[in-house]
Design a binder for these strands. Structure first.
Length: 996
DNA sequence: CTTGAGACGCTACG
DNA sequence: CGTAGCGTCT
């Protein structure tokens, strides 16, 4: 079988891979069911892995050295530093219970209930042992006793009892590397430590072990803070110190290897599946002429493969069958052939003179086509995985995988706009290896890249952000901010921003180009032809963009933003580990609070489950009936059941004590899971860096993920007295405050500088609607709060009499109208009746008639053209605007209006980012760098001595409409920016813009 | 040859 | 309105 999965160059992490037999799977399925039942009934905190282990051990006896883990393949999965115990040796086994996936998996034909054999090195004794943690927690658990009372009651009636050796471990040999992708290569937390072992688990105890070790880092590590160009070794230093630390703690006493392994072997009868053996024999019989290579040891690695093909082509003669197999895997061969072909053209193999010539040619080429080649032989343009599965990749695998899998950069130069000539060669630039051999070639290549990105010739690359990151990280090339790169993917997204997951293929179909399927014989030129296609694609997209008036936006905003985003990803934020650990410590106690809740309901239930909560609140306690006035509660959107959202629960507060508790619980739970634990899993060597996605938001906004730094709470959360009672060591008077933004700290000698567009969306609404009253408020801007001003205008009250509450109310109304929210939604926000809400909206619209007029105009425009535009001519297609369904049409209308405002604001913010960075680059002596964008706020890290000059600079740039918009548009409203600075992100003190 | 994935609900941010 | 992310349930 040809290797469809990526042939990893590293030796396989697993030396065996075993499957449970069907019988054993049934047993385990029963165990899992039982677990689920108990979990529902008793609100147990037990993790599936723990429970699984108990049940397993009661079945089959203790299995020393085996770790049962519940797998939760979220990107917040914690990575353990090995099975973390000297009880494990290379060759030992742990069992992956697959969490709640087990049942499904077992029912299906897949035998994914797996036993993994790890091949880890010596394990640190000092760090916690997961095994021990698991067994300790099971000792304390009430669940153990209960399940002991009724052994096996819930187990299905399988033939398990019959024999004692029902677990049939099917040993996989040889090609266990195929499962390599189920393990993580090294840990993001611990650096690239190959000795680390990965277990995905939600087990808090396990996580702690990780965090505890992760935060033991020297605090003076400065990474990436030096100005671009002179920080090649910082990262390496940090990693080295990190690794040495790990190795130091990793020197636990190595136990005799044989002990555990031998016991395991005794315990698990590794037996071949008789049925499968027969299958194999039959198979070989059918393949007349092929001798049965039935050495008992080589059992199963290709067995399933064979079976598949034998069943699929049962009646086919062997020779023909072989051919079919070849056809089926031709794609793989093809790509691998390309890969092999690549190696012939690596620039590193050229002689010095040839290399110089090649580089010179590429530098003088009018158009340079670039793509990344991955280790498995696929390229960005021809990605076998993407072509076969449209798997929605998330988290770690979304980008980290690809940047780490890049093998080389393929470059092809061509003269005019007609694509590469027929004989053009594609040159491969392999990534410099770990060993930095500083010979002249490397320097040559580095200089080449630098020259290439700084010349103004056209460079075309799909997902250019990844390419630029590679360039900066691996080739150590900086000054890429001005690179003239064109990304067809972004171009295609600009044409239809609602099109999600734009790829090379989709872009091709957008301009009606076809992706040629190549046959094996022509594989030599596949890469070149892909390059041709890339060139052609960009040309078509150029014409389309120009035709749609999007070219300026594309060139001047999106393509200038792209290198900036790449640079921002390599500017990690420093994290204060002490603060974060303190939050973690407090929230650790939160479990006790959690377990106290069911007592209020009379029986245990899962508080996180809206379904179960709904049952408790409305079917058992009947709180909806106790509401005064018989008010109707909001329903969920799809299920049309009573919602348990914050708006509903806060209405119920008076009727019972539970709603208030739930509200508190939800808040803390969110803090705990998302902002403390989630954040911690993103920390690498004391730093956090997010990923920016330019093409995910249909409105043109940026989005950030892993972590979503744009959604970190902006105010601190004070844990209330009630919860306090459940926190050990705290009394009810104590004030416990959790503020995730506080754990982001600036480097020593540096500060954060936040520049906030004030009410940017409202100002743009005023501009777009051309409402005289609104415009007047903004142009005659006094230093007072704009919302107070607005309120006073609206309510015809003097400014001094406007209360904070009224101000908030105005804000809500304004944004609700802007977002097109209905009266129901506003009523929920303001906690009033829908009738009152409607009156408020109406009075607003009467006061500012141009706003509703603008909405109408917007909708009309959309109905005529099928799309809406922003001030920068960005457009969004809204096909539903003519939908016969009133619901869909109303939604489309809201979208149209909202896109106008939100998209315009996004345009302005993107322009601001570019201009700020540009200005900072041109003042090279100023030490400052843009690190984060939160839609209408830019966060910079600024050297202390330059703070004053930079802040005035930033403010002047951001408030200068001409700089931002150029000739695109002339705004009728001034733009105001408020600045604040501080040492932590959480505590920024406002800077008065009046004095310098 | 092998994988969770998708729907839904809630809540941060803007 | 529209992002990410965490959680449950199927």
């Amino acid at each position: 079988m040809s290797p469809v999965w990526r042939p990893v160059s590293a030796p396989p992490q697993l030396d065996r891979f075993c499957h449970l037999s069907d019988d054993a799977q049934l047993v385990m399925k029963g165990i899992y069911r039982q677990y689920n039942e108990q979990r529902k009934q008793q609100n147990t905190q037990e993790q599936p892995g723990t429970y699984y282990q108990q049940m397993y051990e009661r079945r089959f006896g203790a299995l020393p050295g085996v770790i049962f883990s519940s797998s939760q393949t979220r990107q917040t999965a914690s990575i353990l530093p090995g099975p973390s115990s000297s009880t494990l040796e290379p060759g030992d086994v742990y069992i992956n219970s697959l969490s709640n996936q087990l049942e499904r998996t077992v029912c299906g034909k897949s035998n994914a209930h797996s036993v993994r054999v790890n091949n880890s090195g010596p394990i640190p004794e000092s760090s916690h042992s997961s095994t021990m943690l698991v067994s300790e927690s099971s000792k304390n658990s009430a669940l153990t006793d209960i399940s002991m009372e009724q052994p096996d009651a819930a187990l299905p009636n399988t033939n398990f009892e019959d024999t004692d050796t029902d677990i049939l471990f099917q040993q996989d040999k040889g090609d266990s590397w195929r499962y390599e992708k189920t393990t993580f290569e090294g840990s993001p937390l611990l650096g690239n430590n190959e000795k680390c072992h990965s277990i995905c688990s939600t087990n808090t105890l396990e996580k702690e072990a990780v965090y505890a070790s992760d935060f033991k880092i020297p605090s003076d590590n400065m990474r990436g803070i030096a100005s671009p160009g002179n920080s090649p070794n910082c990262t390496t230093d940090t990693r080295q110190s990190r690794q040495s630390m790990v190795t130091n703690t990793c020197t636990g006493p190595a136990q005799g290897k044989s002990s555990i392994s031998a016991r395991l072997k005794q315990h698990m009868i590794i037996r071949k599946d008789i049925q499968m053996k027969q299958d194999k024999r039959e198979h070989h019989k059918r393949q007349s002429g092929v001798p049965i290579n039935a050495s008992e040891g080589s059992t199963t690695s290709c067995l399933d493969t064979d079976r598949k093909y034998s069943s699929a082509h049962f009646s086919t003669p062997y020779k023909k069958q072989k051919k079919i197999m070849d056809d089926q895997t031709s794609e793989t061969h093809k790509v691998l052939a390309v890969s092999r072909q690549h190696t012939a053209r690596e620039v590193t193999r050229l002689s010095d003179q040839d290399l110089r010539n090649v580089l010179q040619t590429l530098l003088s080429a009018q158009e340079v086509l670039i793509t990344l080649v991955y280790k498995n032989g696929s390229t960005q343009l021809r990605d076998i995985n993407a072509a076969q599965t449209k798997k929605k990749s998330t988290g770690i695998f979304r980008q980290k995988q690809w940047t780490s899998e890049v093998q080389s950069v393929a470059v092809c130069g061509c003269e005019g706009g007609n694509g590469p000539p027929h004989g053009a060669k594609v040159w491969l630039f392999p990534l410099p290896g770990q060993d930095h051999n500083k010979d002249s070639r490397d320097t040559h290549i580095r200089v080449f890249w630098k020259d290439l990105v700084s010349n103004q010739h056209r460079k075309i690359c799909c997902d250019a952000k990844i390419f630029l990151i590679i360039l900066m990280k691996e080739f150590n090339v900086h000054f890429i901010i001005d690179v003239a790169v064109f990304d067809p993917v972004v171009a295609a997204w600009l044409m239809d921003p609602d099109c999600e997951n734009v790829t090379f293929h989709k872009s091709l179909s957008l301009v009606c180009l076809t992706w040629k399927e190549h046959v094996l014989s022509s594989a030599v030129d596949v890469l070149r032809e892909d390059m041709c296609l890339l060139s052609e694609l960009m040309k078509c997209l150029y014409q389309k963009l120009v035709a749609r008036d999007l070219w300026v936006l594309y060139c001047c905003v999106e393509m200038k933003l792209l290198p900036l985003l790449a640079a921002m990803e390599l500017r990690p934020l420093r994290v204060d580990s002490d603060t974060m650990l303190r939050f973690s410590d407090v929230l650790k106690q939160f479990v006790k609070f959690e377990s106290s809740i069911p007592s209020n309901a009379g029986h245990p239930f899962l508080i996180n489950s809206p379904a179960q909560l709904r049952q408790v609140l409305f079917e058992e306690l009947k709180l909806d009936k106790k509401l005064p006035g018989g008010k109707r509660l909001a329903k969920t959107n799809i299920g049309h059941q009573i919602s348990t959202s914050e708006a509903v629960l806060s209405q119920l507060v008076g009727t019972h004590c539970l709603p208030a508790i739930i509200l508190e619980y939800r808040q803390v739970q969110k803090l705990k899971s998302t902002y403390v634990e989630g954040m911690m899993s993103c920390v690498r060597e004391g730093y956090i860096s997010t990923h920016w996605d330019q093409t995910s938001a249909a409105t043109g906004r940026l989005s950030s993920y892993q972590p979503n730094i744009q959604a970190i709470p902006k105010t601190s959360t004070v844990i209330s007295d009630y919860t306090n009672n459940y926190i050990v060591g705290k009394k009810s008077g104590d004030r416990v405050e959790i503020f995730p933004r506080d754990s982001f700290i600036s480097h020593d000698g540096w500060s954060f500088l936040a520049a906030d567009f004030q009410q940017i969306e409202l100002r743009l609404l005023a501009h777009l609607a051309d409402d005289p009253t609104l415009l007047k408020i903004f142009t005659e801007s006094r230093s007072t709060d704009i919302f107070i001003e607005l309120t006073s205008q609206w309510l015809s009250k003097p400014v001094s009499l406007v209360t904070t509450q009224e101000r908030e109310q105005t804000k809500r109304v304004v944004y609700s109208v802007m977002y097109g929210a209905g009266k129901e939604r506003l009523a929920e926000y303001l906690k009033m009746s829908t009738h009152d809400a409607k009156a408020i909206i109406d009075s607003f619209l009467v006061k500012f008639p141009a706003v509703s007029q603008f909405s109408r105009k917007c909708v009309e425009f959309c109905q005529r053209n099928g799309f809406t535009t922003t001030i920068f001519k960005r457009r969004r297609l809204i096909p539903n605007i003519k939908s016969p369904s009133p619901v869909l049409r109303a939604q489309a209308e809201r979208q149209a209006v909202n896109f106008c405002v939100q998209g315009s604001a996004a345009d302005l913010c993107k322009a601001a980012m570019i201009q700020v960075e540009h200005t900072l680059q041109s003042h090279a002596h100023l030490k400052a760098r843009l690190v984060v964008q939160i839609h209408d706020e830019l966060l910079l890290e600024v050297s202390d001595e330059d703070l004053n000059s930079i802040r005035s600079l930033v403010q002047s740039v951001m408030e200068d409409e001409v700089t931002l918009c150029g000739k695109m548009v002339t705004l009728k409203v001034p733009i105001k920016v408020s600045l604040s600075s501080g040492k932590t992100w959480g505590h920024l003190s406002p800077l008065d813009s009046g004095k310098l």
